[in-house]
């Protein structure tokens, strides 16, 4: 149950990463299909990440580095941090889809914007919680999982940058992600 819940949260998070990585590239007014496509790409990236992490975790059990019970305990601690965050974000979304503009404003300004800003810290906090009281191997796996989730969004930035010609409407050349001084 803990593993399944963590996977669902990870897929939802990756899906939002896809949405954010694509946001601000399409100037059309109606871009529902493009947004859904970006979220699906994020979810696919999340699924790939989860498969890789699953293989790593199973491998660690197989070679005796970690135990199933130790991982479940760590997962429970990790989940606690993420469920609190997810609940706050879910409330923010409920507010964002309210019929009152003032409630929508509050949801954006107090929850959704700051929530995105706090996301890396929350993901790391989950890893710290998982590592606390667990073995070194479990802690290492927790931090690898957190790092993998944090890398999804920048990876999707680059993915969309490379497809800039089809995703940026109207088209503008992709930015140089590592700009250097030019004279």
């Amino acid at each position: 149950m803990i593993a399944v819940t963590l996977c669902i949260l990870a897929l939802a998070d990756a899906s939002f990463s896809g949405f954010r990585a694509h946001a601000g590239r399409d100037g059309r007014i109606d871009k529902r299909a493009a947004k859904a496509n970006a979220a699906a790409i994020g979810a696919a990236a999340g699924a790939g990440t989860l498969i890789a992490l699953g293989a790593l975790i199973l491998g660690s059990i197989g070679i005796g580095l970690t135990t199933y019970d130790g991982l479940v305990d760590a997962g429970g601690r990790m989940l606690l941090a993420y469920v609190i965050y997810a609940t706050v974000v879910a409330c923010g979304f409920a507010g964002y889809f309210s019929r009152w503009l003032e409630v929508r404003s509050l949801a954006t300004m107090l929850v959704l914007g700051p929530g995105t800003f706090a996301r890396p810290a929350v993901i790391l906090a989950g890893a710290v919680a998982a590592a606390t009281g667990g073995s070194a191997s479990v802690g290492l796996l927790a931090f690898i999982a957190a790092a993998a989730m944090l890398l999804i969004e920048p990876a999707l930035w680059l993915w969309f940058d490379r497809r800039q010609e089809s995703t940026m409407i109207p088209f503008a050349p992709a930015p140089r992600r590592f700009p250097h001084r030019r004279h």
Binding site: A23, G24, D26, G27, S105, T108, M168, P170, A172, P173
Partner: peptide, 25 residues
């Protein structure tokens, strides 16, 4: 061309912010 590209990308991101705060409404 480079200055235009930077401005265009910036304005697209600015539009995203306007969409989020529902500026049209």
């Amino acid at each position: 061309a480079d200055a235009d590209a930077v401005l265009l990308r910036s304005h697209l991101e600015l539009q995203r912010l306007a969409e989020e705060i529902q500026h049209g409404q």
